[in-house]
């Protein structure tokens, strides 16, 4: 697949996304917009589009980095407990600093997501059976354990329905003033680009990387920090988008191979295209209501993930 096809579908979907919604705005109106239409576009449609793109790109890149660092195709923020840890962090910030702004929440969520990633990496060191399928299993177990700790506190504070309502991925709330936090992920994605080759080398194992003159520990830490920060931001603003970071890099690998720097732009674009498509689907399927992105991606994503591991099994 050529990059150009991805670019074209991205542009088409992005424009479609702008003009779908209860408030009718057609592309033909573009030169004679009423005040109300301009308002809708600026306050709701454009922020939504931007947040979809940023979240899609960010989570896909996170998945790609994690897969390179662990040398395992099935590791991603969903299957390594990172998302659950970020969720726990958000709950903690809700309980301890209930009056604090978004920024404090991101910091706390980031801290927890980072902690979760480090624990997961430590678990990886201890697992003797380094089977490609066993690792995500451990990661998801770890995630559900963190989830049960979250539940323990959420239950005491009577926050369970509250938590699930704003932590299920949902773009309908993305209006002006609520999505800007996602901009933080842009510099992170740029850093990921710059470090791409080093992540690949770091993934080849500590000894190998050190032999090649790489500060292995530092690169690992940078990678995990990028992943944790992007995950924390996305979970906090949009909510959980399961399996996104897992399926996109894998699809790209199927046709692009493993070279990180070559596949990064594909991964980023495909992530945005996929989330855009899922979001449009969710908006039209029960129009004028909408299905949250967490559900659409959760359903489609688990289907694709199942297909991928079945396919992998067929090769064995």
């Amino acid at each position: 697949m050529k990059l150009i096809y991805l670019v074209i579908s991205f542009i088409v979907l992005a424009i479609t996304s702008l003009f779908i919604g209860v408030q009718n705005i057609s592309p033909l109106d573009l030169f004679q917009l009423t005040e109300e239409q301009i308002h809708v576009l600026l306050v709701s449609r454009v922020p939504r589009l931007l947040s979809i793109i940023l979240a899609g790109v960010g989570m896909s890149i996170c998945g790609l980095i994690m897969q390179q660092l662990t040398r395992n195709k099935f590791v991603s923020p969903t299957t390594a407990g990172t998302e659950d840890s970020a969720r726990f962090g958000i709950l903690v910030s809700m309980m301890l600093f209930s009056g604090a702004g978004q920024f404090v929440r991101v910091l706390v969520a980031f801290f927890f997501a980072l902690l979760g990633s480090f624990i997961f990496m430590k678990l990886l060191d201890k697992v003797k059976y380094k089977d490609a399928i066993f690792i995500p299993l451990v990661g998801m177990m770890f995630g559900s354990i963190v989830g049960s700790i979250t539940t323990f506190f959420a239950y005491k504070e009577d926050l369970i329905q509250n938590m699930s309502s704003w932590l299920q991925g949902n773009f309908s709330m993305m209006i002006q003033g609520r999505y800007e936090l996602l901009y933080i992920s842009i510099p992170l994605i740029v850093i990921a680009y710059l470090f791409a080759n080093k992540f690949t080398i770091a993934g080849m194992g500590e000894e190998f990387a050190v032999n090649l003159g790489l500060n292995h520990k530092q690169i690992m830490n940078i990678g995990l920090m990028i992943v944790a920060l992007i995950t924390a931001i996305v979970v906090l603003t949009v909510g959980m988008i399961p399996f996104l970071g897992l399926i996109i890099p894998n699809i790209v690998t199927m046709y692009r191979g493993d070279h990180l720097q070559k596949s990064l732009s594909h991964t980023a674009l495909l992530g945005a295209v996929f989330v855009l498509a899922c979001d449009i689907l969710g908006r039209v399927v029960i129009y004028p209501y909408e299905v949250p992105i967490g559900l659409t991606v959760g359903v489609i994503g688990s289907g694709i993930f199942l297909y991928m591991i079945m396919r992998r099994k067929a090769y064995e």
Binding site: T78, I133, L137, M140, S164, F243, P292, S302, L306, I309
Partner: peptide, 17 residues
């Protein structure tokens, strides 16, 4: 087990919705 746990997430998404 992995297939089972993926189904678990799948059910979880619908439940949460």
């Amino acid at each position: 087990l992995l297939v089972g746990i993926i189904f678990g997430t799948f059910f979880g998404s619908i439940t949460e919705f």
